[in-house]
Amino acid sequence: MANSSNEWDLIIEPRGSLFKLNLKEVWKYKDLLEMYIKRDIVTFYKQTILGPLWFFIQPIFTTVVFMFVFGGLAGIPTDGIPQPLFYLSGICLWNYFSDSLIKTSDTFYLNQAVFGKVYFPRLVVPISVTISGLLKMLIQFILFIGVYVYFVAKGTHIGINYYALLFPVLIFILAGLGLAFGIIVSSMTTKYRDLKFLVAFAVQLWMYFTPVIYPLSVMEGSYKKYMWLIQANPLTAVLETFKYGFLGKGSFSWFSLGYSFAFTIILLFIGTIIFNRVERSFMDVV
């Protein structure tokens, strides 16, 4: 009975290889990914009156509040961009990132009942969360387009240009960063839960280090000393590129966008390694 090792379909061992990313397996479970996405969307507005309208209500109200507080009271300029457009674009992008991060950061904890019983590549769950969030984001983007068209029809000059075509790249970076940070946090909170409290708080503060409510130019004018901090933030390039492409204001540099992109790829890689590591034995510590 000579058992060559390749005869077995499945080998269960204490520790897998560190750099085995298991992505092939995730692909094998793509139907499950689809089901999870469907579930997230379907169950979102079951037994609600307004249903999918909720996707619009949140950004509209946030925009209105921002216009009063930051635009009105604090008087932060918006680079000449109409305030609703400026805030709405920031909110759509930022919310997608923060939703992805916060929702995926609970992956192990929220799914321990399922994870404790059946094996499937756990990465399916955070990926599905990121993708269903993307749908929400795209719906909100339609709202943005609506407001955009309104301003154009009113005769406001808005300088859309070819850089708007980078939109899919921006979305990828947002999704990738949200997912990567989320799964790293999720992997760490299985054992030490304190991190969970920190994350909600940190994400809130993080927004102020990202040009969401202010244009980068204003920050540069007032706090030149801290610009490195804003520049190091991989989200800065995303928001600035978006505003540059769609609204014609802000700044764009291939270097900072490339930095964000590289940052995302590396973080995703690290995150997947950590996540795969934890998924193998998290049931014992959660």
Binding site: I11, E13, V118
Partner: peptide, 21 residues
């Protein structure tokens, strides 16, 4: 069913495993 891993040792199997845990 690969919900958790062994501390030592090895399990090898042929075919898809489904669990009714």
């Amino acid at each position: 069913s690969r919900v958790t891993t062994p501390s030592t040792g090895k399990i090898t199997a042929k075919g898809r495993i489904a669990s009714l845990l």
